[in-house]
Simulated assay, not measured.
Amino acid sequence: MEKSRLIQRLMRIFLGELEELIDTLENGVEALERADRPDERTQALETLFRAGHSLKGAAHAVDNPRFESAGHYLEGLFAGMRQGTAPVDAETLTLLRAKIAAMRTDAARLAIDALAQDVQPPVPGRSASTRRHLLVVDDSPTTRNMVKEALETAEYRVTAFEDGLTAWQCLQEQSVDLVVSDVEMPRMDGYGLIEKIRAAPHLSRLPVVLLTALENEVDRQRGLLAGATAYLFKSEFSQVGFLRIITQSLQNNYNDKP
């Protein structure tokens, strides 16, 4: 029952972000067609590339291979246009409009399917005052809410932020038991957040789990050396494995306290 409710909530979040991304793609293609100056063309292609990248990541987070494949294709196409290896001509723009229109149709069908799912009633749990308080920090709404929902299903109390600076401000004002953070974020990234946490005497032992798309060994070692309790790849996210690491990190922190 809990897993079904979680999937339904995540799908609603994804559908909202999907609609925004399709709008961005449509507007971006129009801007690209109207672009008269090189800087206008560069800006339009950058917007389109980011939309394709975000679509790929959001679809991956909810295990939707159809939209993940579409995002991967668009990301590669717009990267090629930026580098001059893919054409930007009337034929290509026409094909793009057709693909985006097909995506909107698929999104509408997905929304209808989601509405047809039975909604399970909430299951009573422990009161908020007795639950561990965790912070989730990620600039992607889909990932942020996916992680938040997974933790709330496990009866943690969760506060979510879109950048490290607002999370750091919260840490100055509230008692927190663990932080789950992305690395690449505006204003303050995950490395900067860990640095501040480890430098603060009252927070230096706070568990910090990095969940990121930076998936090479160099970045992983940098995160662990910075003081991350664990370094997890977004592409390998598993709710069961993730919650196991959260539980272990909290337990280890409790056992290590003097």
Rank of each mutant, 00 (worst) to 15 (best):
S181T: 15
D89H: 06
E19K: 04
E26R: 09
E152I: 07
M146E: 08
E217D: 13
E17H: 02
P207C: 10
S4I: 14
V158A: 06
A228F: 09
T159W: 01
L135Q: 02
G164D: 07
Y191C: 05
T92L: 07
H72G: 02
S54V: 05
K99W: 05
V147C: 03
S140C: 06
L243G: 01
E19H: 09
H72M: 03
V158Y: 03
M188I: 09
A154C: 00
R12I: 12
I13Q: 06
T92P: 05
G28I: 07
A86Q: 13
V179R: 08
H60D: 11
T153L: 15
Y231Q: 12
A59W: 07
F242Y: 00
F14C: 02
A228W: 00
D36Q: 13
P65Y: 06
K257H: 15
A70Y: 12
N255K: 07
K99H: 10
N145K: 15
E75L: 08
L214R: 12
H202Y: 07
M1V: 13
F14T: 06
S249M: 02
A86E: 14
H53Y: 15
R157N: 11
E91M: 07
A228R: 04
A31R: 06
V137Y: 01
M185N: 09
R244G: 10
L77M: 09
E217A: 09
E33V: 03
M11N: 14
A107P: 02
R144V: 02
R5Y: 00
F67M: 14
R109K: 13
P207Q: 13
S175A: 15
L193N: 11
W168K: 07
F78I: 07
L93F: 03
L21R: 08
Q251M: 04
L243I: 02
E68Q: 15
L93N: 03
R104A: 08
L15C: 09
P141R: 02
E91C: 05
Q117R: 04
T92M: 12
Q172T: 08
V218C: 08
F242H: 07
R220G: 02
H53C: 15
A90S: 06
L250Q: 05
R144P: 05
V176E: 11
S181E: 03
L225A: 14
A101K: 10
Q169Y: 14
E173G: 08
L206I: 00
R205C: 05
N145D: 13
T130E: 12
Q174P: 00
L243A: 02
L210H: 05
I245E: 13
E217K: 03
A199S: 12
Q221H: 04
E184S: 09
H53A: 11
D177C: 08
L178M: 05
A86L: 05
L135D: 00
A116H: 02
V137M: 01
N145Y: 08
D138Q: 11
S127H: 02
D63V: 07
E184N: 14
E152V: 08
V119D: 14
L224F: 10
L96P: 09
M11V: 11
P207D: 14
R144L: 11
P186G: 14
A44V: 06
S181W: 03
A70W: 12
T166M: 02
F233Q: 10
V158W: 01
S235I: 11
Q248R: 10
A160E: 14
S238M: 05
A128H: 12
L225I: 05
E152K: 10
A31S: 14
V180P: 04
R244S: 13
L151F: 02
K56D: 03
F242V: 04
L115K: 13
E17K: 01
G227W: 11
T229K: 00
P201Q: 08
